[in-house]
Nucleic acid binder design. Structure first.
Lengths: 339, 339
DNA sequence: TCAAAATGCGAAAACGATTAAGACTTTTCG
DNA sequence: CGAAAAGTCTTAATCGTTTTCGCATTTTGA
């Protein structure tokens, strides 16, 4: 900035104001300064700016830290990709948040403060952990994905409609004996889907035997195989199994085939997520395709709205929102039409 | 820091030195200062520190920007996960690099400077792009993954041995008519594998008809299906097809089954990568399991070494290294033993 | 015993930006 | 015409650290 100022014969303050489009600099000077800044390859020093303004143009991403599997989770990776693209186009970079910086432990909140993050998006994590709750309730702008907190804007996939669509589809295909392996019971996604499952079943007049509904952790392929095996060994076995995600569904398909039965000839299978994976396997999976890029994008938009309204400490902060993003049923070929 | 200084009855300078373990502060004072700092919940302000020291403890990750598919690429995501874990344990956070900050275009190098990144890891990108080359040759410490530049430390998967292992395995299983769909020709990974393929074939006395070897972009499942279909329609069709990765291999399996042939009964299939995917499908894929977490970890270690030696502007910067990480052949069940 | 060396700490200048307050010029308008 | 208003730019303080240099005080050793 000093060089630009000298080259233009103005003060450093003037350069700063010109770059930030303040109103007390003449249009002519602004143009002149900006052109020479451009020519001299000037880029602002974010650290200096951050020091003065407390804004880093950097957004934190918080996701499952312990298992180290978050990134390889196709659904989450895909949401993140959407989030990243939108944030970047608005001038924000994204940085991962964690708890072990340099072998020391700090809370997520402390990490955010330390790094000076402008806001955080929270996804794919145990939302009941005190540390996460503390972050969400802190002064740092936050958006959660697939979980709803009271005082925090959230973006969630429309799990209710998704599950309802599945059930109605299965019903229309003639299925009456439907099993449901659901994910971890303590997540909101699971709760929503379970509610939709039972309510829709009731409204269709479907009887669901209790032993048809079991917990099976998301993406836990071994557990999926075990549960599947239990289901198909039942004397009155289901004609169709709904899985918590595509991974487990595919694992289920493998297990069914291993036991000598065919998909969808003997047992129909439905997944959830609709990633690349689901189209790839043979037969292609019947599943709900979640609109991951839209979820990520919307989360970024809402978060940045909040950040920027905070920054101008305008009186009216944006309201806490609940965004619900619809998915789409992909028929695939793992559900058989019953006669 | 001011508060800590007051509370301890020392100057701010002393606090700073105590926290940074300078030698001219007595052990006793250090302990006292650190304890009260801890008690008062002090965390250094990274922006201020960055301003003074030009160190952000932040590492950039550069990967395919355009297609927006990098993160959902299981291999890369997994490498990144390893990189992230190691970096974080050493006190560095990671941030994504791109070219469109706030709708303006800046070069990767400019972005790094702007953000004050201490170093960059480059992966999963077109390494011949001038912008990437410029970054690698810049003053910013850089490590590349799966590509070797002259003046830059690199970590690559052992693609030569991987391909050699595949070919020898196939040979031992009795295969003599082996087709190879390889990835984009202009990548180093492909070149290495192709070299290994031809050299090993020669040393085994295998004849490879030119029409058995075709290009098929990595992860391009449609292309894989088309190429596969072409191969199996040949009058003298191969007994085995090697694919560039697991995704395409699975797509190939689907295509083969679609045409009424069986895997591995009629055609054997080999993938590459060995992610979760490969174990999941039915039959489980014969593939090379790349040691992704080790690749990521090693990249982080080497990069941080370079960063920290630069920081102490010690005379001897660490030498440019070529790290090669071995993979492992996973037999799976898609290769048939020929009589 | 006393100069020299070592030890422990503080004062103050940076780092590169932002911004309130003020200064000088020019315009406006009764 | 002249005072107030508007427009344009500068001065200087500030953000929270790090680091050089200097000043006491203590220790060392011949």
């Amino acid at each position: 900035m000093k060089d630009v100022a000298e080259s233009c014969g103005v003060s450093i303050a003037t350069v700063s104001k010109a770059m930030n489009d303040h109103s007390d600099i003449s249009e002519e000077t602004k143009q002149r300064i900006r052109r020479t800044a451009e020519k001299m390859g000037y880029f602002p020093n974010l650290a200096a700016r951050a020091l003065k303004t407390n804004r880093t143009y950097n957004i934190g991403v918080l996701y499952e830290d312990e298992a180290h599997s978050g990134l390889t989770h196709e659904y989450f990776a895909s949401v993140l990709e959407g989030f990243k693209a939108e944030s970047e186009s608005r001038g924000y970079d994204i940085t991962f948040i964690n708890r072990t910086v340099s072998n020391k432990t700090m809370s997520y909140y402390e990490h955010c403060k330390y790094r000076g993050l402008d806001g955080v998006v929270v996804a794919c994590i145990d939302f009941y952990e005190p540390d996460v709750v503390a972050l969400v309730n802190s002064s740092i702008p936050t958006v959660t994905i697939d979980h709803v907190f009271k005082n925090c804007t959230s973006v969630v996939s429309d799990n209710y409609t998704g599950m309802e669509d599945i059930l109605r589809y299965l019903y229309n295909m003639g299925h009456r004996k439907i099993a449901y392996l659901h994910g971890e019971s303590d997540t909101e996604v699971t709760k929503t889907r379970l509610t939709a499952f039972y309510e829709t079943a009731a409204s269709l007049g479907l009887e669901i035997p209790p032993e048809y509904v079991m917990e099976c952790d998301y993406c836990h392929v071994q557990m999926a195989a075990i549960r599947t095996s239990r289901l198909i060994k039942m004397t009155d076995r289901p004609s169709c199994i709904i899985y918590p995600d595509d991974m487990t569904a595919i694992s289920g398909v493998s297990e069914i085939k291993r036991s000598g039965l065919s998909v969808p000839g003997d047992i129909s299978v439905v997944g959830y997520d609709g990633g690349l994976l689901s189209e790839l396997v043979n037969p292609p999976l019947t599943t709900i395709k979640q609109n991951t890029s839209q979820i990520g994008k919307l989360a970024a938009i809402r978060l940045i709205e909040t950040i920027e309204s905070y920054a101008q400490n305008s009186q009216e902060t944006p309201p806490v929102r609940r965004e619900v993003v619809e998915g789409e049923l992909i028929p695939g070929k793992t559900v058989r039409k019953m006669n």
